[in-house]
Design a protein around this nucleic acid. Structure first.
Length: 116
DNA sequence: CGAATGACCAAGC
DNA sequence: GGCTTGGCCATTC
């Protein structure tokens, strides 16, 4: 059945807070397998409900392709809806990357009323 | 079990 | 800054 790696990936992505993002390589590194970034992409292909899959982007801060770009479009809209700004089709990872470590708070707070 | 696949990444040009 | 090449790894055929 589903490999344990997928479960670990999903469990980790589930902890990503609103307004923050992580890269595939980062997720892999946090799982103890820094070289398995590609496998993380496979796990995301079948992410169950409850997993903020849209908060996972590639190392360049852009949205990876999955064959058709429709999913990528919804991902962008979802991220923008959480207060993440896109500059030239990509986001500033230095600013939005999730540290997974308490204490390193976001430089920008999430303000829904500001989006409208 | 070998070969192909892919929501990746770093290095080279 | 963008495009190409090679490498990595888990999943699927």
């Amino acid at each position: 059945m589903t490999a344990p790696l997928e479960k670990r990936v999903h469990a980790l992505v589930r902890r990503v807070p609103v307004g923050r993002v992580v890269t595939y390589g980062q997720v892999a590194a946090l799982l103890g397998a820094p070289r398995s970034a590609r496998a993380v992409g496979h796990a995301m292909r079948v992410c169950p409900p409850g997993v903020p899959w849209h908060r996972v982007v590639n190392g360049r801060g852009t949205i990876s392709r999955r064959g058709d770009g429709s999913g990528a479009l919804s991902q962008r809209l979802l991220l923008e809806g959480e207060g993440i700004r896109f500059s030239r089709g990509r986001i500033n990872l230095e600013r939005y990357r999730w540290s997974s470590r308490p204490g390193s708070g976001p430089v920008r707070r999430f303000r829904p009323e500001l989006l409208k």
